[in-house]
Design a binder for these strands. Sequence first.
DNA 1: TTGTTCCAGCTTTTT
DNA 2: GCTGGAACAA
Length: 721
Amino acid sequence: MDVTSIIDPLNDAQRQAVTAPSQAMLVLAGAGSGKTRVLVHRIAWQIQVEGLPAHSILAVTFTNKAAKEMRGRIENLLNVSANTLWIGTFHGIAHRLLRRHAAQAKLPDTFQVMDSGDQLRVIKRLLSTLNLDDAKWPPREIQWFINAQKDEGIRAKHCVESGDAHQRQMLAVYRAYEQLCERSGLVDFAELLLRAHELLRDNPEVLAFYQQRFRQVHVDEFQDTNTIQYAWLRLLTDGRDNLFVVGDDDQSIYGWRGAKIENIYSFQRHYPNHQVIKLEQNYRSTGTILKAANNIIANNTGRMGKELWTEAGEGEKISLYTAFNEQDEAYFVVERIKAWVNEGGLRSDAAILYRANAQSRQFEEKLMATGTPYRVYGGLRFFDRAEIKNALAYLRLMSNRDDDASFERIINTPTRGIGAKTLDELRIIARDQSISLWAASIALLNQRKMTARATNALVGFLELIKQLSLQAESLELYEKVKLVVEKSGLIALYTKEKMDKGEEKVENLEELVNAAKLFDFDRANEENMGELDMFLTHASLESGDSQADDFEDCVQLMTLHSAKGLEFKLVFLVGMEEGLFPSQQSVDDAGRLEEERRLCYVGMTRAMQQLYLCYTESRRLYGRETYPRPSRFLREIPPELIHEVRLRATVSRPVSVAQPKAASLQNLGSYKLGQRVSHAKFGEGVVLQIEGSGAQERVQINFKQVGVKWLMLAYANLEVL
DNA sequence: TTGTTCCAGCTTTTT
DNA sequence: GCTGGAACAA
């Protein structure tokens, strides 16, 4: 067997991790140190050299993307298909266990997974049936509460009632929510993990089976595991020392959603025979970038301790740009990207990273204005779109009549004359008799108390669903989807919706049919599920990319969080200001501040060749002009690594040359960048930028007293000093 | 039922 | 200051 291809591409530390005998192992892998490579090669090693059958290996990741990549790379390395290998997300694997052992997990065979949007809707509805004012009980807060409890493994019945009225009410909602999910056969994301944990904990024969089956368990991004995920891993590997985890305490940036960095420390206590291997050689960035990143992260306390190094050279200095305001910041970045492209760089090798999504707009506008293609990450995903969720809700209801969340979603979409009144009655019956809305509809019709119109409308809806189920029975999956999309009236609804929005929705529905056609049922069809249920689960568990892979070469815009795991030759880290990064909400809490610092570390280590840091002296935020101080993280970088960009020279534009026709107004040519002017109301200032021409010509002025403002030249009545 | 107005909220995100 | 959602009027 060809072992060389597995171990040859590895450095010493990596090889040590890959070829170690089976034991508990903690691989502390710094940014860009070949973390995924170690996992992939470790698994390949076990199959090819240790002779473990592929089905006895489990590998868990956080995202579908990571799981997919890992499977692909293993198959590539071994040159065989690795279907029997269990690689998936925590939620995906948990779901698989629950499907296989639905009865032991006390779930109906037809249970459906709901995503966080569905969950929020369920909670909102619950609040109204409980007669709780959702202004006083914000649904999002309750959702957060419920998920946080579940992430800690706490069911409503385990919660200790404190005297606190607020907490008691939250608990009451939690309890009601659990009942509703039970009745509707709905399982939310956190529930998947909690149920799977309970399944193993309470069924010794199931646990024993999987403990024996999985001879090796691997975990990626271990620093991001939460309490219940780690508890689940411990059950699976109890007493067997076969847990292999890879992570980086310095890259833990999801504490706010329940990730427990402490799990890394607990690991060392729980598996006393473990071995720790540090991967510190970096294959991504220049020496300068690493030095700066190391210096920043060194300000955190309680680290495991790691220092990245590289064999590559020092590289260029880190550039620091001080912008007047966010417009100027965006302008500068876009100019630099243009220069990069002119020198032969790819746009897709350039990334603009920011702390908050709201920051993207300035950059988008400037990129748009210069005709530079770009892609913004994040935003609505395919399966999150309203029209898609509506179509899926029809399919769900066909599969499971008791799915109240879907029932509510589509009972009057498209409108079919079933109003709030009928719905209210249904809810009351459902609540009083503890039955589903579907069953309540039948009960209500039997009472024969409704008006003919309402009766007809309701009967029409029930009949529609029944008819659809009947007709769908013998059809292929994609034909079922097609049938629903057409017969439900959704296509008709969106076709007549005005503006181009409706057209897009119709296209998305067609895309859904297409997705069903391409759906790879074989991939995971060992579960006892029908094809339709598989597809619906797929829709919940993999919300799909926000846009289909666009092969156009474009500039990448994303938050620092979504940049984790990626790398770019040219990186702009923008908005490096106190209050923005670190964010205002984090500065008072040492723990949260350290998480912000890790985020900064993550951002900087994305850069391969060139790193630009930017901050502004003035920024419009929530409609207010603010004058932020430079981020403290900037001061944590040794000054000798930084090159301050002297800006005006590089940014000035030949405005008067390019726009000779702007001459209609008297002031042609008298405004240059840096020109000192005076305004009747704002006083004295300096011209920063000039835009537009003729009556639209505007100048940006930094006033001594009132700060930076844009003024229409035609009305400003400026006096040149 | 739809279009309009009003009002709160405003880090980060995957599953 | 903008956006999305909910309340309200026609």
